[in-house]
């Protein structure tokens, strides 16, 4: 696990953010739609080039590093399982990509599937499983990449309310000792998963503190609304 240092300026979107995440820490980023949360994840993952800034993971400066070599896995709102592969092959994708032999990769994949409680789905096609199951598999696939940093972009937003607690529990276990950033609009997610909450409005950090503190005594306008439950 490595610490993250991020500074990102995207002039067009009015984004100017500096953020540090300690090794093993999970930070929840929240804020109104369009505040630039997903863009920040894009910058960290290397999918989006900032106008100015720096991404440092551990002692590596990643600015010129292509996405595949960053050690940063991204779990999006949609599970985006590769439709032409079985569930097992999806999870085995990352190990195979870093050169692990097929048999070992499959064993590893099965272990991660078990970790998220989806081992019985191994032989299915992504089209044959439910949205909640698919997101579990996506978690397993991201974990199988053994990332130094895990990014989660509203991983539960597209799921039915009744399957969220189960996935939340899965993520709680998975994120326990990991450096991770989770973008969420759900106070319950933040409370369950994050050590720290960061609120972004109009491209800037307006509140930053331990989860308990931010959620129990919100200062920013968005945090107040989040806690009062007026945001869904």
């Amino acid at each position: 696990m490595s610490a993250l240092h991020l500074r990102a300026v995207i002039a067009r979107r009015g984004i100017d953010v500096t953020l540090d995440v300690a090794a093993g820490e999970t930070v929840a980023i929240t804020g109104p739609n369009g505040a630039g949360k997903s863009s920040l994840l894009g910058v960290i993952a290397g999918l989006l080039r900032p106008d100015d800034g720096e991404v440092r993971l551990g002692d590596r400066v990643l600015d010129a590093t292509p996405p595949h070599a960053r050690g940063v896995a991204l779990l999006a709102q949609d599970p985006l399982l590769f439709p032409h592969m079985s569930v097992l092959a999806n999870v085995a994708f990352a190990p195979r990509a870093r050169g692990v032999r097929r048999r070992q990769a499959n064993e590893l994949a099965l272990r991660h599937l078990t970790e998220v409680g989806a081992e019985t789905l191994a032989g299915r096609r992504p089209t044959e499983i439910s949205g909640g199951q698919a997101q579990r598999v996506a978690v397993a696939r991201a974990l199988a990449a053994d990332p130094e940093l895990l990014l989660l972009d509203e991983p539960m937003a597209s799921l039915d309310v009744d399957v969220r607690p189960a996935l939340r529990q899965t993520l709680r276990t998975a994120l326990a000792d990991r450096t991770a950033i989770i973008v969420t609009h759900d106070a319950a997610d933040a409370r369950a998963l994050a050590d720290r909450v960061v609120v972004i409005e109009h491209g800037h950090i307006v509140e930053d503190g331990p989860t308990e503190q931010v959620l129990d005594d919100p200062q920013s306008g968005f945090a107040v609304r989040l806690v009062s439950g007026s945001i869904k």
């Binding site: 993952a45 999918l47 896995a73 991204l74 994708f93 990352a94 990014l151």
Partner: peptide
């Protein structure tokens, strides 16, 4: 993009 973040060249 997903495949790239999973470490695939």
């Amino acid at each position: 993009a997903v495949a790239a973040t999973l470490g695939a060249r």
